[in-house]
Design a protein around this nucleic acid. Sequence first.
DNA 1: AAATGACATGTCGAATCCGACATGTCAATT
DNA 2: AATTGACATGTCGGATTCGACATGTCATTT
Lengths: 167, 167
Amino acid sequence: MSLRHAILGLLARQPSTGYDLTRTFDVSLATTWPASHSQIYPELGKLEGAGLVEVVERGPRGSKTYGLTDAGRDELRRWLVEDEPDRSQRNESGLRLFLTPLLPSQDRRSVLARDLAHVEQQSAILVAIRDQIEEAGRDDPFAAQVDLGIRVNEVISAWLAEQLDRT
Amino acid sequence: MSLRHAILGLLARQPSTGYDLTRTFDVSLATTWPASHSQIYPELGKLEGAGLVEVVERGPRGSKTYGLTDAGRDELRRWLVEDEPDRSQRNESGLRLFLTPLLPSQDRRSVLARDLAHVEQQSAILVAIRDQIEEAGRDDPFAAQVDLGIRVNEVISAWLAEQLDRT
DNA sequence: AAATGACATGTCGAATCCGACATGTCAATT
DNA sequence: AATTGACATGTCGGATTCGACATGTCATTT
């Protein structure tokens, strides 16, 4: 169950409320590990019950800021270093790509073109983020991830363009 | 619900038994869209109930070979061409990559090295498949997918090596 | 004073997914 | 004749996920 560890990981970076976590999932993990608040709040409760997180502060509007306990930190480290990762990458886009050869040429072209447009748009977003980070001049560990995303998108984009040419 | 469409797609390529589908999911879709027989058999039943597939042949050992109905073919095409794809790519490896900056240098190195080894091993497998396809000389639409996999792996592999150097 | 919108937490039910359990057939080997 | 292993289909319960429903606070704008 990765949701548990995703939350532990985010809390390790920064003590947060459930609401904060929901926003982080939305902006930084929407693609990689989607989760909505209806999953996050109950999971925080379980985590608290298991002694892996604790409420470190109570703010206005009934907000509760959670932080890791020592046990939580241990568990996070154990998971990252010792647990064998689940390497599956469930993605509908890949499934669609696998099936597009079934389509007649015209349909196939329109599907590939739609994908290409999407990838290029994503690339633009990532490049903008990279530039922002560069400008800020901070040494952001996140920069490397963004860079990986840009490079992967470039490869996919080129591949889609090739496929379009050949279809 | 993509499982439904994954099954329709596989049956469009080739009428198959639940057992056949299970094997195809295992070898061709294990990474992209994992599914076990305990999901596949009930789904085939629902699909049959909905009139999208039908039993086209009964063989030994009680096997039932399913094929698409016209309604099934329509639904598959509709999904591929008209439905907006779900672009999320739930993957634990990405989540881990996002969190590794939290780790002390030594742990981080060992995690990155493990990932690198895995990606290189996957690359080797894909290259072997590519060579096999090339030798067979068939014009396999699957070849392009394999090629994409190889290229993506190359990028990831290079990125991981860089990160290792810097850590 | 009312309205709006971001902040904030929660529950519920339906659908999905997954591993374990269960059963049986058929061909080839021992 | 018995065993083994691939073929073949199914169910069940627990966990996970997801969208919808529900409630309330606080600051800013109108």
